[in-house]
Design a protein around this nucleic acid. Structure first.
Lengths: 103, 103
DNA sequence: CCGTATCCAGTTTGATACTG
DNA sequence: CAGTATCAAACTGGATACGG
């Protein structure tokens, strides 16, 4: 017999994805741009360590939130949201709305 | 002349409030109950350390998200959302919806 | 019941420098 | 440009025990 413990109504999956420091701020840039580059994020999210940024992008890739695009013409790497990532945007948008209200 | 640097569209205020580990899960219980007790949260959010729980509740109080109610009849402490806290609920609801979709 | 106090191990992060 | 390497500091978390 298999016992399953299901926690009904849970935010865990979401926190696993956007719960890390910097991650919501990183995802926010996808609200205004389809495609984002490493160095853009580095500038825009003031002072994030490249190591940390790299770790966050990798984690988001692993979780199927973003996809890495290798451009053949240059060394530029670009990232874009997957459908799963796009489905996350309402949360980010809410956070932005709330922040503007209580800044 | 006053120079202001405004970061347009920012999620920082929200992450300052719900960005800590456990916090979204704690806030979630206010979706179903007006009032929540310390020991309830301790049970429901599996295995959170009382020190951490205490720290989170204090932080949420400081930020004006929850209010502590001292019950006269017993040693029980209860917490309830402030209006500011209630305004946060759409984010939590979104996170819950997303989580149920991608559990 | 509701916390606070200690102790301590593990994780995360920033600063900085460096490579393909 | 897009990362990786290293080091040390800071933060955080769990276990446990104790006090109001």
């Amino acid at each position: 017999m298999i016992t399953m413990q299901v926690e009904i109504g849970c935010v865990k999956a979401a926190t696993d994805v956007i719960g890390d420091k910097w991650t919501p701020q990183l995802l926010r840039f996808f609200l205004s741009s389809e495609v984002v580059r490493f160095c853009q994020l580095q500038e825009l999210v003031g002072g994030i360590n490249p190591r940390t940024l790299s770790a966050r992008l990798l984690a988001l890739e692993d979780k199927g939130i973003i996809r890495k695009l290798h451009s053949q013409t240059s060394s530029r790497c670009e990232y874009e949201l997957t459908p799963k990532g796009k489905s996350l945007m309402p949360i980010i948008r809410d956070m932005e709305a709330w922040s503007s209200q209580y800044a």
